[in-house]
Design a binder for these strands. Sequence first.
DNA 1: ACGCCCACGTTCCTATAGGATTTGTGCCAT
DNA 2: ATGGCACAAATCCTATAGGAACGTGGGCGT
Lengths: 232, 232
Amino acid sequence: MPDPSPSAARAGFPVSRQVLADHVYEALLEWLMDGRLEPGAAVSIDGMARELDVSPTPVREALARLEHTGMVRRVALKGYRVAPVFTREDFAELMEARLSIEPVNARLACSRMTDEGLGALKQAVEDLKTAPRGGTFAEYRSYLEADERFHQLIAAQANNQFLLAAYNTLGGQIQRFRLFGGVGITDAEQAIAEHQAVLDAMIKGDPEKAAAMMVDHVEKVRGRAMADAPAD
Amino acid sequence: MPDPSPSAARAGFPVSRQVLADHVYEALLEWLMDGRLEPGAAVSIDGMARELDVSPTPVREALARLEHTGMVRRVALKGYRVAPVFTREDFAELMEARLSIEPVNARLACSRMTDEGLGALKQAVEDLKTAPRGGTFAEYRSYLEADERFHQLIAAQANNQFLLAAYNTLGGQIQRFRLFGGVGITDAEQAIAEHQAVLDAMIKGDPEKAAAMMVDHVEKVRGRAMADAPAD
DNA sequence: ACGCCCACGTTCCTATAGGATTTGTGCCAT
DNA sequence: ATGGCACAAATCCTATAGGAACGTGGGCGT
């Protein structure tokens, strides 16, 4: 596939070039996060290869990488499927896991916060406040993105590669649940206030308060979601 | 590759057949855990394919899956390498992460413990006590295996798929550190006593005690390792 | 009509081929 | 001796081909 304008050429420094499998990975990840690939849907290797106009080999590699995120599941000789919709139990487990990890991240992040990190966090909360919150997905996509970014930033500021990796695994699931949990954005005002409370504690430099506010936030998210979607 | 006696035939129910990539994955994982592949060593796709007598395709898929475990790292167009030796900072981060996750697992596992789980835990501690602890790797391999199994069982008994996944990511790193951390098994008696303390709390059905004992154990592991290997 | 069987298409899986890239080596000029 | 260049080998990456398994739909027999 002779690329007429290799990006390596214009930059001069390729630094970290990408291969096809990387592009495929990102495309699939985006489609999963977008909801373009619905839970339970088959993800055919050959089909995706045709869709993306590449050979099946890079698709296979990308899917192998995606499997660990829990967003697609593989059955030998049968192929990949998008992970099924969260059950009530799955959701409860996810929140339990968040409650074990995110407060720790918040405490550490508060202790180790950099100026850049704090700025980015403020920006994320600001984006949450200003993001449109319409009824269609396109309209609250940026809201979800800012929400995820806030938590991701805290995990990154905790400055621990293993905790960050652990959070990232959860993060993908959280995002997927936000999409398919059924409930729209009905709790934005409260959620924003809770995020603000975490941020305030960070600004004050009070790690314990930050952790406590994070516990509070996650517990309230759980409470609202469990109340909103009682059926299952 | 016409298998003259397909295992599917004798069992009647294949249930879950394996493909080459699965075998390659397990072989590589074993070699990594064994120390047969040393930190920093290159893991050539073509080379491994020759070694295992398969084509590069399944090797590529297995390595893609392995990358997320953190045991191998990939650089585009340059290939895979075994993750480098732990630095002191890496180790500190790993222990910090364990301290966030394992006590939670212990608390939950204690609440949700099954009879089978408790039996398996007792067995693991028993194996720890009886395992040979010679100087060569082969001689303390079963000791390491029992140690890892103990923690893995607790994570499994916590009955939370996300926490289990989070622990498993750490577990591989812990095992790798045990191999290449430099220190042999110099603290077996103390470590066994700490494991026993966790187990006792589980038997008593005291979740808080179990969590506390786990904190104690991990902190002491950290202390001993940091004291044993001051150079870096 | 209902059930069985076979042909067909789809998909997964593995091997192989070849282009692109990196790395190592030896030579040459400074 | 050191730095740069060219060439060669190893390696990665992608595409393609073909075998095997699975699912599907139509045709045939009862």
